[in-house]
Simulated assay, not measured.
Amino acid sequence: MTDDNGMPEAPERLVADAKAGNWVDTRAPRSARPFLRLSRADRPIGTWLLLLPCWWGLLLAMLHTGTAGWFDLWIALGCSLGAFLMRGAGCTWNDITDREIDGSVARTANRPIPSGQVGVRKALVWMALQTFLSLLILLTFNSAAIGLGFLALVPVAIYPFAKRFTYWPQVFLGLAFNWGALLAWTAHTGSLGWPAVLLYAAGIAWTLFYDTIYAHQDAEDDALIGVKSTALLFGETTPRWLRYFMVGTVLLMGLAVVLAALDRSVLALIVALGGPWAMGWHLAWQQRSFDATDSGSLLRLFRSNRDAGLIPVLFFAVALLL
């Protein structure tokens, strides 16, 4: 087989930070594996981190209105499918724009584009397909949510370039990855509200927390090739900054809960407030366990944020039942 330039395709290469024995490497058709790796299907943590703010927004919206219907099940499912597809499209776009940088970083050198497994033209087609399928899901929501869905493309498009001009690319990642909190809230209520905005801000603080941990894996390579990150900016002061982001996450989410559930029962409000509080304990454990010199530990801490983000989902769901 040949690539877009008529050259023989490079042999299959496994990606450094994918879990050993993942389904893409072991079960997916060989011809599909490079495209699934472009979408990070072999590393589902990113899909979780994109999806969880959607579920936060939906559950808080239901708690706020005191209503729940069958369409809310579709919102939850649609957000799940959309998170997988849009995360895949965003990662494909990221790999297209970063193909030269990725080839210079040890952790990313084996990604499909820099390693020659997928050409840029095929990657663009793959990105367009995922985006189109996401659009079909988005069009089932109300008009306000559809409008927000289109606006979400702005931070997604900008993010891959942010590390070239700012030490805060994680802010742009947070703007993109937490948009679902706004969209899911609006899909249920029909309009934006302050609880959704505060929840969005909490998600951005959370993204700054977990992606700073993640960025420390590449700090040395990033410094050599001249790209920026909060890991490089903070250096040895990272634990202190992680504490700031942790506190911001908990306070902003707590305020969102208060505004959303103020008209509900006292018990429901207390239970819902348990979500950010318990999540804060998980983030505090991560902050105490942070070791910038241990790449394996950094990756494990980053992945543990799926569990951290699921904690508010559990508490909000219980509060809704009350």
Score class of each variant (00 low, 15 high):
M62L: 15
M62V: 03
M62Y: 00
M62Q: 12
L63D: 05
G66F: 07
G66V: 09
A68Y: 07
G69V: 02
W70Q: 12
F71N: 12
L73V: 14
L73M: 11
W74M: 14
W74V: 12
W74P: 14
I75L: 10
A76G: 14
A76T: 09
L77V: 15
L77M: 12
G78S: 06
G78H: 00
G78Y: 06
C79E: 05
C79W: 01
C79G: 15
L81Q: 00
L81W: 09
L81P: 08
G82F: 00
A83K: 07
A83S: 15
A83W: 02
A83G: 12
L85I: 06
L85G: 10
L85V: 11
L85Q: 07
M86W: 07
R87H: 08
R87Q: 06
A89P: 05
G90Q: 10
C91H: 00
T92R: 00
W93G: 15
W93P: 04
W93T: 02
N94L: 13
D95E: 11
I96Y: 04
I96R: 01
D98S: 11
D98Q: 09
R99D: 01
R99A: 05
E100F: 08
E100M: 07
E100R: 13
I101W: 09
I101K: 05
I101N: 04
V105M: 11
V105F: 09
A106G: 03
R107Q: 04
A109H: 10
A109W: 01
R111Y: 01
P112V: 02
I113K: 03
P114W: 03
P114D: 06
P114A: 06
S115W: 04
S115Q: 03
Q117C: 11
Q117W: 08
Q117R: 15
G119D: 12
G119W: 07
G119E: 12
V120C: 03
V120R: 11
V120K: 08
V120S: 05
R121Q: 10
K122A: 13
A123P: 04
L124R: 15
V125Y: 08
W126L: 04
W126C: 02
W126S: 10
M127D: 05
M127K: 02
A128Q: 08
Q130I: 07
Q130Y: 01
Q130M: 15
F132K: 01
F132D: 08
F132H: 00
L133H: 00
L133F: 12
S134L: 07
L135W: 10
I137W: 04
I137K: 03
I137H: 04
L138Q: 04
L138Y: 07
T140N: 11
T140Y: 03
F141R: 09
F141H: 09
N142A: 10
S143W: 14
S143H: 13
A144Y: 12
A144M: 13
A145S: 13
A145P: 11
